[in-house]
Design a protein around this nucleic acid. Structure first.
Lengths: 153, 153
DNA sequence: ATAAACCTTAGAGTTTAATCCAAGGTCAAG
DNA sequence: CTTGACCTTGGATTAAACTCTAAGGTTTAT
């Protein structure tokens, strides 16, 4: 059992944030002490981990509430309904995933292309990398660093 | 060449948002008309696409400005400096990527586990799926659907 | 040449997600 | 039995990212 400050410390957030999440229906402590202190158990902690992860990858608290609602009232929902919700979110996640993979590829190619030395970074552009990786990641053998001309305006 | 309203419509955002991005150094139109209208070219459009994508995967406008700064002043920066920036961002992207893959896995397993029918969704929980996928995705065969008792208040 | 539909600026208002503050209750240490 | 570090509540403030308003200039169409 964690008290609010302990759980907050565990995830490097403020106790205020936990109260905020509670007020907004994202995470309630599973019990309270006699004196009314919030007491969070391991499940609560897992739930918080989920919330923070989802937030980190770009979901709003509302999105997250949707996702968590699947758990909260699972006994009141039909499987079909749940499946629909899950599949919708899955689409969103996979769209984000695709975007991120795109970014990662571009950043990697950028990092590789870049000489890493003290020279001017004339060819170092994420946008360039994104464009090229978008079109064809082929033609990426000739990475000498002096074809200054391939610059469209 | 797009005018502000056209470009906004193209990406389903508000003209205001484009002015906001401009004020915050994220995207400036490459030219202006005689009467002072913003005129965006294809490169500007690509840049906007990048901004919106980065935003969608959880980067703040500040993060995005960092990333784009690589392009903006590329000729004024040393490759080493650029490489450092890129590699930092790449780490962030890969962390997000890992999180998202986690989510995707969980959601998929949830979707598969779920009967999809009109029955109560007693076993449908993202948290359950996350937990199990975190530990071991094994032991997922015994999915009878009737242990109604595990309900704590 | 005037109305509708654009555009300009500066600045105010909104939403989301915290974060802080004030007034007071609780608890372990001395 | 009081001090300090916790906790409670509710409401105010902040920051980011828009979103809107006001006052006016421009363009196109009739």
């Amino acid at each position: 059992m964690y008290r609010i400050g302990e759980l907050a410390a565990l995830y490097d957030i403020k106790a205020d944030t936990l109260r905020f999440y509670e007020k907004h229906g994202l995470l309630s402590p599973s019990s309270r002490s006699d004196s009314g202190y919030r007491l969070y158990n391991q499940d609560d902690s897992e739930r918080l981990k989920f919330i923070l992860r989802a937030k980190a990858v770009g979901f709003s608290l509302n999105d997250i509430a949707d996702l968590l609602s699947i758990e909260v009232d699972k006994s009141n929902r039909a499987c079909a309904e749940v499946k629909g919700l899950v599949d919708t979110k899955l689409e969103q996640v996979e769209a984000k995933l695709a975007e991120l993979q795109h970014f990662a590829t571009s950043l990697k190619s950028l990092s590789n292309t870049c000489c890493g030395g003290p020279d001017s970074a004339e060819h170092c552009s994420i946008l360039e990398a994104l464009e090229s990786s978008e079109q064809h990641i082929i033609a990426k053998k000739e990475q000498h660093h002096f074809s200054h001309s391939g610059h469209k305006d």
